[in-house]
Amino acid sequence: MEKSTRNRLLQEQAALWMMRSAAFVVFASLVAIILTIVVKGWSSLSWEMLTSTPQGGYYLGKGGGILNAIAGSVYLALGSTVLATGIGLPIALYLNVYASPSGRSVGMIRTALDVLFGVPSIVYGSFGFVLMLWVGIKVSLFAGIIVVGLLVVPIVARTMDEVLRSVRPEMKDAAFAMGATRWETAWKVVARQGLPGLGTALLMGFGRAIGDAASVMFTTGFTDHVPGSIMDPAATLPLAIFFQLSSPVPEVRERAYAAALVLTMIILILSIFGRLLVKRSSKHTI
C-alpha cells in the first residue's frame, strides 16, 4: 500500500475512535448520573419515606418523609400541564390549520416559542415574582401553576406544532373538500391524526414542570405539609432535594436522596412512556 493511502486510513481509524469515545462519554455520563442517584437514594427509600411528611421541620427534623414534596410536585405538574396544554394545543392548531403556512405570523410565533423555550427558568421565576407583586397573590400552589404553566407552554406548543406539521396537507384538503370548517378540520381530523404525538408533548411538559426548581422557588414556596388548598404554599421535589441536601443532619440528607430517586424515576418513566407512545401510533393514525 502507498504510504499516503495508509496515512489516510490511519487517520480514518483515529477519527472513528475519537468519535466513538465521545459518544461513549455521553452515554457513560447518563449511566453515572442514574447510578449515583440510585445508589444514594435506594437505601433511603422506604414506605415511610414516601407516605409521611417531614417531622420537626424539613431542614433539621430527623423523622418523617417526603410526602409533602411528592404531593406538591404532582399537584403542581398536573395543574401546569393542564394549563400549558390548554394554551399550547390551540397555538399548534393555529399554526397548522388557521394561519397560512407561508405567512409571516407563523414564522414570528414559532420564533417567539423557540426563544421562550430558551429563556432560563430563573427568569420565569423572577417574572413570576414581579407578577405576584402586581396582582397581589402570595406564594402558593396557584402562583406556581401559573408560572410553571407559562414555562411549559413553549415546550408543549412547539412539540405539538411539530407533530401537527407532519400531518399531510392532502388530509386537510380532504376534510375541507367535504365542507368541513377549519375548526372541524382542526379538531376532528388534524388533532386526531396527531393524537399519539400530542400525548408525548403532554408527557414532556409534565416532565419539565415536575423537574424545574428555579421557577418554583419564588412562586410556590416550601412547606412541611401537604397543601390543603390551591392557595396554600406547596413543597416540590426539586426544592426538597435542594434544601435538604445542604442540611447538617444526615437523616435530612437521606430525604434529599430519596426525593432525587423518586424524581429521577418519574422522569425516566415519562421519557420511556412518551417514546412508546410515539412508536406505537394510535389505532386510527394514517
Partner: peptide, 21 residues
C-alpha cells in the same frame, strides 16, 4: 364556502382516508 364544497366531491392524487374508522 362550506355549502359549496359540499356540492363537490374531491378525489386527490393519493387517497387520503381520515384518521378514523
Amino acid at each position: 364556502v362550506t355549502g359549496l364544497r359540499r356540492k363537490m366531491g374531491l378525489l386527490s392524487q393519493r387517497p387520503t382516508p381520515l384518521p378514523m374508522s
